[in-house]
Amino acid sequence: MSYIEVSNFSKSINNKFIIQDINFKLEQGEVLVILGKSGAGKTTLLRNINLLDLPNSGRLDIDGEIVYNSNEPVISNKELQKRHKLIGLVFQSFNLFPQYTVLDNVTLALKLNNKKKIAEYRRKIKNRKEVLDFSKKLEEEVFIKASKILNDLDLGDKLNSYPYQLSWGEQQRTAIARALILNPKVLCFDEPTSALDPSLTKEVISVINELKNKKQTMIIITHEIDFAMQVADKIIVMDQGKIIEEKVNYHE
């Protein structure tokens, strides 16, 4: 079995297929680029892989786990939350949280997670000091992890900046860091280079290649062929909701 398997994904709205019978496989550390014109169904496919929308039919397996299966009974919200963490997404417009600093944007999810852990710990261990130590330890761990990710993405000096104070590239890298802190099995990008000038596109390519060196599995949707050729291991071409071409990219 492959690391990621998307099988028979279909999504229809008002009896009209937006994506139909999508199948592909991806190995760990590979980069898949989904190419297609606007309206080809790329974004819908990505949203369904991210479980932002749920496909009408199909199955998604990641690292031997069933992440979605349309034959399975309805997933509870709690379960859905857990599965969301397996799949990271960098939105086209990043959707950073404007009221939080770069560091807080990145650590928010883990901090909320830790809150639950601390509450659980408090129920088990009544000793106040121990609980305090425990929460301090967790906080420190989050900070160290976030700092490392942000440093690696060249944002070490932006920890306390707010999103509106960042350049386009810095915002994108913050969005990447925010997704990476959850150790997602796969990181998805929605049009990471759309309407960018060539020098910025180069920046994006180098960031993606760096992630690739760390064996981060990625799925990227784009309509820019040149960009696709430079980052992809596999390319899928979509049109009218279907895969019309699938190829391995021997770029090295």
Partner: peptide
């Protein structure tokens, strides 16, 4: 997008 950014991070509603 602000809601969706929360959901993909595994945050509850």
């Amino acid at each position: 997008g602000q809601y969706e950014a929360g959901y993909v991070l595994g945050l509850s509603k």
